[in-house]
């Protein structure tokens, strides 16, 4: 407990330092911009931009501070303090009933915590509105025979961008096709989604969020119903999303052993002495995977 506290204190200090740095940079930016016109020093400006970019990267994508939540009168999650940074591949794990899904829903703002603080960054690394792709564990619409073609469904991931009435461009179709190919479902594009198997439904849901080109991918047990090859392919796919596209992936999984080589960090939910669930973060030591190297 003490170590967790001291880590929190350290983090707090870090945040403060960042805040000051940001302020100084802001002030500097104003002055430098003026002087840049005089000296024509583009390099100064671009360096500043780079510094700011680095700054943005360090900022947390999602933070939860001492969050408590429960569905009935008893809290099922207590003392949850989690940080998700930009560009991380994080797994959430824990036994059945450990409120993993609840943790994700709290993080996404689908549930409101009883107490504590949950914050999700408003903007992505590119400075635009944060795009979140969420794949829930079960989707009721699949059972009721939602009438939709696979391709139509995956294309709906593109609706998140731009106006509700914009015309879909060739780029949107390309993205949808790429996403479907990435999950190996392109051949099934003209099928009704009701005809697919459980694992296939899972995969077209993943394709839909990939088509969104999200900053944050949140997946709730995405590999249930997948065979081993598909699971490994999936971990590789997610890993590539993180390493090459700078996206952040948070997923709930039970297959930690298989996924471990690809992960940056594991958040484990453990039972507290008095019955509730708390949250422990373990950082896996995969040094050669940190994006800076």
């Amino acid at each position: 407990m003490r170590t967790a506290e001291s880590a929190f204190v350290r983090l707090f200090i870090k945040c403060k330092i960042y805040e000051y740095m940001e302020r100084i940079l802001d002030g500097l930016g104003g002055r430098l911009r003026k002087s840049a016109i005089v000296t024509g020093a583009h390099t100064v400006r671009s360096r500043l931009r780079m510094m700011q970019k680095v700054e943005v990267k360090q900022v947390q994508l999602a933070t939860m501070r001492e969050v408590m939540f429960g569905y009935a009168d008893v809290p099922c999650l207590e003392d949850v303090t989690v940080d998700i940074r930009f560009g991380e591949f994080v797994a959430v794990t824990g036994p059945n009933g450990a409120a993993k899904t609840t943790l994700l829903k709290l993080m996404l703002g689908l549930l409101r915590p009883w107490s504590g603080e949950v914050r999700l960054a408003a903007k992505g690394t590119d400075g635009r509105k944060l795009v979140v792709g969420y794949v829930p564990q079960q989707i009721a619409a699949f059972n009721s025979g939602f009438p939709s073609k696979v391709l139509e469904f995956v294309l709906s991931g593109r609706f998140a961008q731009g106006s509700w009435l914009r015309r879909l461009r060739a780029e949107d179709r390309e993205q949808a096709e790429r996403a479907l190919r990435q999950v190996g479902m392109w051949e099934w594009r003209n099928r009704r989604i009701g005809e697919l198997s459980g694992g296939q439904k899972q995969r077209i849901c993943i394709a839909r969020v990939l088509a969104m080109e999200p900053d944050l991918l949140v997946l709730d047990e995405p590999t249930t119903g997948m065979d081993k090859d598909s699971r490994l392919g999936f971990y590789e796919l997610m890993s590539r999303q993180v390493r090459e596209h700078g996206r952040t992936v948070v997923m709930v999984t039970h297959g930690l052993a298989e996924a471990a080589p690809y992960l940056d960090r594991v958040i484990e939910l453990r039972r507290k002495e008095d019955g509730g669930w708390k949250c422990c973060t373990t950082t896996s030591c995969r040094g050669h995977f940190s994006p800076a190297l």
Partner: peptide
């Protein structure tokens, strides 16, 4: 007519529609 896309997303699943903004 105007809301056909948001309604499609909403009808499919409310949670994912909400996280999609």
């Amino acid at each position: 007519l105007l809301l056909r896309r948001p309604l499609y997303q909403l009808t499919f699943d409310e949670d994912t529609a909400k996280t999609a903004g």
